[in-house]
Design a protein around this nucleic acid. Sequence first.
DNA 1: TTGTACGCGTTATCAA
DNA 2: TTGATAACGCGTACAA
Lengths: 338, 338
Amino acid sequence: MITIKEIAKQLNMSTTTVSNVIHGKTGEVSDETKKKVQDFLKKVDYVPNISARNLAQNESKIIGLALKARADKYENLIMDPFVSVLIGGVEETIRNAGYFMMLYISSDTDEIMRHVSTWNVDGLILFGMLNDDGIRVSEKYKKPIVCIDTYSIEGLKHFTNIGLDDEQGTYDMANYLISQGHRKIAFLSDNMNGVDLARFNGYKKALKDARIRFSSTNFLKIKPRADEIEESLDEICGRSDEFTAIMCVSDLYAVTLIAALTDRGISVPEDISIVGFDDNMLGQLHRPALTTVHQDVKAKGVTAAATLLKQLSGQKTPNQIKLPAHLVIRDTVKNINK
Amino acid sequence: MITIKEIAKQLNMSTTTVSNVIHGKTGEVSDETKKKVQDFLKKVDYVPNISARNLAQNESKIIGLALKARADKYENLIMDPFVSVLIGGVEETIRNAGYFMMLYISSDTDEIMRHVSTWNVDGLILFGMLNDDGIRVSEKYKKPIVCIDTYSIEGLKHFTNIGLDDEQGTYDMANYLISQGHRKIAFLSDNMNGVDLARFNGYKKALKDARIRFSSTNFLKIKPRADEIEESLDEICGRSDEFTAIMCVSDLYAVTLIAALTDRGISVPEDISIVGFDDNMLGQLHRPALTTVHQDVKAKGVTAAATLLKQLSGQKTPNQIKLPAHLVIRDTVKNINK
DNA sequence: TTGTACGCGTTATCAA
DNA sequence: TTGATAACGCGTACAA
């Protein structure tokens, strides 16, 4: 790897001149030397050493993408189509802006923070943070932070959040189910925090507005861990006759549930209606095609990265950006109106 | 961010002593000062500046994971469950070894190389390289390289490849189809290079061994680009009555094809048998569950990273590591023997 | 056992 | 228009 110093030596000039040419500080340097240097750079295929540059300028050109994994979900985090599309959107935007992405997955916030400060990361995108996690991070880390899908009133004071109108999404979906004659509607999720809670609230609100009583037995809890999920599914399928429809918090769960039901001889949508949330390939490729709530996950990643880049260039950004969600009606809901 | 210099000043000692304690060069330093320094480090939450360390030691602790995307497939690369699981396996292994992962996606080999040398990456994992790509890289980059799924005789001289017995996988699968009475078997893929070619070869070999004539019309080419795939599928579905079974080069294509067939009133496996390759969640969650060839993708990622780490610690590794593939018989193949 | 001083590759300041 | 030189934070040879 050739260095500026070496180039300067071979060209009989100073490192400053070479550096100036590299940075296009034309006007500071004669056209003649400029050309000479540029040709030489091309010839030797010069690539700057980023570590040295970082040290000199105290900036890294790295944007960290930290995925906080719940301990019980760690295994499948990256397999989730949602997560991988998100990563893709972020990576592409960062790369096009001349930055680099460092991906870090951990269930330990402190570990994430250590990582971020060793690398002197210029900006941070956080996904999977719950309530106070984000605040703890922003106490230690004083550079731009953008969160994705974080529901934390307190946190919004400290950073921009890229979210979705989750509540509206499930509200619309529940209303749609109600319009199709459903009243015994369950909600399936694996937790009651953040996004899941917001989606649950939209569902509950729709029930309330339609004067349908919500009982806690309508909440079906699924356990995501590989060694427990079968048991969960068994229990849920066993109780499926209590409902005419089940709203799942994600397409992944919806498709998983439909497979489990099918295996037990229960047909969707004939015997029970199932809907998801996300509108990813899992539901799109499924037959019957999944009725779900659409969100543009890639756009979420792109927006998060673009917002961070804006902040890095000194612009202000709103505290909250909410992407729209909308219903996608396909084939897993039966109209049970007489 | 506190520096060693600053710590030394506050503690009234030299930077060497502090540095020695940090690096556990005990024996070089008295227990008393050692304790004093350690306590202080913890108190101020010292984190080394990696850029400076890189510069001083000429190593980065970064492992690059470069995904080379085909131009026409770029969009969906990261969405492919195969890719995301692979990334997960690599990331986990690298992180546990105290290294960092830099993910880089590009369709331009030169761009990848530039990226790698700016960061002075300690080792490189390459995925999606075709034939000479890997060689071009290894000419410029003189540190350890591990490839994933690269078929390149020439390349194997320069780096370790982590592969799969692709040919055996499709060979077994084709034989299974033949045992179920199928003779008109098509093969679906989007290209004829690398992995796809190997899988195709296994299929052809099985046909040959069973004395079934292979005609070029048995190769169904699908176009992966979003704006062309529908047209492809339409054509393929239109020709589906020429075959009793279609072997798809991936689960993704298998499931996509089944959905397209279903939409046209063609049932799987009643009207036609479809099989995939990979055994990922797409096929597992599908109903009827997909008959496919299993490969452990996470293990591929883990093995690639572990092999690279071995090389970094100076150990020799074999040029070729082939992971096993095996049949997973589920419900998308019909026995058409009388 | 501890400290001084230099080098890593780059940028930036200031002088020539 | 160009060139010395210091600085960034860390590791380490060598000196004390």
